[in-house]
Design a protein around this nucleic acid. Structure first.
Lengths: 200, 200, 200, 200
DNA sequence: TTTTAATCGAGACGGTACGTCATGTCTTTGT
DNA sequence: ACAAAGACATGACGTACCGTCTCGATTAAAA
């Protein structure tokens, strides 16, 4: 999925644009290889030369448009967590990215290649800095150290995606804040007032 | 999706069987309306007469096979939560249901009708008894009453589905137990040792 | 095709009407058994009970509407011939019958039952009186007696149908008159001035 | 219906063969687009790409097989006429072409495109040389000049097609000869012994 | 008058063919 | 040489009718 060989820069741009346009207009189902090729003024073979499947093209187009950079991830664990949660709401709920990501995750359920690409190129880059901040907090003793970091992170990451993909219940900043608070509560060092205490 | 008119019981059975068979063998993608009809010895129109889409047939077949009844849901909130979590692992991870449900949820991302059907006929019936137990616990004062029940439930429900659908990380009984414990910790009444304390 | 058994007069009427209506609106192709039944407020089985095929229903509806009676056929051979020719033009070209008959003859090319019904119930009743007049003329010696009557009649009958079905060239009263004249010329007793002489 | 674009010669041959085979075996009704495609080892879309309808494919297959060339058409009007009449009998009655042409003309009654194609590519090429011979004879004064050539030709062409399509009466060489003789009689210059006199 | 059996409408059923769409591969053509 | 254009085989889609088959409801003759 990366640019190699004699791949023409111009065609590459045209293809990604041609793939993302219909994605926003008609959704994932409306994007077809033939349609992308025609829109991009490109032979169909060119698509198959560089991408293994429709999902791959669409995902790269999605990355290209949406990947302005991972969510801001500085400071301590609590800040990281809040930043992630608010970034999630901004991108997926307020922005147009949510519908696209939903469809891509949907397609990934029957497309292992896409699933792997999503994990490696989308989820993990966003998860890693928060995980690092968590480990730092664990080392500093401000959150429980006896919980696997990935499990702990799921307490915040999972509810956000769950409402997006599964439950369909409201997904907004208030929910994100609540979830973060509950997570911090769960990770509180026993006997302490908790890592988020100072912020309230 | 319910039996109305003079729908033939025999055909209905044959269709659901014919839809679920290939589902296990080749996955959701390999199930086609024509294939179901042929396997069931049924006219194609009969499928379209009673179901609006492939997803609807497959979902009904899934319900028919897997819906042996919701997860056991008796007792107090903690027991309910553990029962749900273990039921989830048993059905989705140890059993064959997980792959099917993943594909259905995937399809639901681009099929609002299926999404609604999943929520109403699958998720909500399993969520409701646990929610009720939670409300009871809130009234009894053993868990925090200042948290929206659905948000609280998400702390357990979401991570399970998240690992199934999104992260691909290990999903086993140990993880389920940890998640339940963290949830109880988060919902602990401040100053109390928490509802799950006696169990540890 | 005749009314027998418990056949309901009311349904029979409704069916013939329901069959002829769409015939005029959308042509033979647009008439379907299901459509007729629905329009007539009749069960589909009722149609199949009384008619063997769509063609049979349509033909009976055609007869019912158009069969106001054969063309007038009195007098001598010349008058008979002219009467037939003008009747043909009036019904098939000026009236709406031509399009219907064309379609029925078209269907008859692949439907022997319809072909037989057309011959027996439509063509022959119109041909017979003219043939009889011809035989009379042959006995009276005013037209050649050494020509098979059916062959002789074809000289007029055939060109009219030919233009309707095959050549698509103009088919009007002038053409009909010319054809009749040429036929009379061909059948003239050698040495005589011909049977049509007195009329010119 | 003509070969344009990059139409594959091989597929084109296979399709015409595949269309004509079932035509002879089961008649026009038994020929289906799907059947042709399967027999020809060709995608269904390829048929729809190049032909607008089943009738068009079948007609082209008919032309391809039967169109060994128009009926021989040399010499004077009388010879032309006899040649046409005998060619008609040979091809349509003795050969297998008659059944095919009947069905095609039948289909043409509800298919204007096919009707036009039949006229332009089948009937007119056969009619034109005889018409030319007739005009020559009219100029030479051996047949009546006061009759429209097309009307005159109908005296022979029409009866042959009429018996084929409509009346179902015997259609053989004797009938053809009689019809030709009667036509020549009808077209005889008044007072003359007729153009065919020398041949008898 | 009541029973009873044929006939009706309605429409589900297993099928066949339709014409369209998208797929992924292969071929031609122009640059 | 490469890439656009697009033809190709494949196969699923959803629709339209077909002719057969149950259903109850109606209805008209037989009891």
């Amino acid at each position: 999925m990366s640019q190699v060989g004699r791949r023409s820069k111009k065609s590459w741009r045209a293809i990604l644009d041609a793939a993302y346009g219909p994605l926003e207009e008609g959704g994932y189902q409306s994007v077809t290889m033939g349609g992308i090729a025609a829109r991009a003024g490109v032979g169909r073979q060119t698509l198959y030369r560089w991408w293994p499947s429709r999902a791959a093209v669409v995902f790269e187009a999605f990355l290209d448009k949406v990947n302005a950079g991972p969510f801001p991830a500085g400071g301590d664990f609590t800040a990281s967590l809040r930043a992630y949660a608010h970034g999630f709401i901004d991108l997926y709920v307020k922005g147009a990215g949510g519908a696209r990501l939903r469809e891509l995750i949907g397609a990934a359920q029957t497309d292992p290649d896409l699933a792997r690409a999503l994990t490696e190129q989308w989820f993990e880059p966003r998860r890693a800095p928060v995980r690092e901040a968590l480990r730092e907090a664990q080392r500093a003793g401000v959150v429980r150290a006896d919980v696997d970091p990935d499990t702990a992170l799921d307490l915040v990451f999972a509810p956000l995606h769950y409402r997006l993909l599964v439950s369909g219940q409201p997904l907004d900043a208030a929910y994100a804040d609540t979830v973060v608070d509950l997570c911090l509560q769960a990770l509180r060092v026993p006997g302490d007032r908790g890592p988020g205490a100072a912020h309230r």
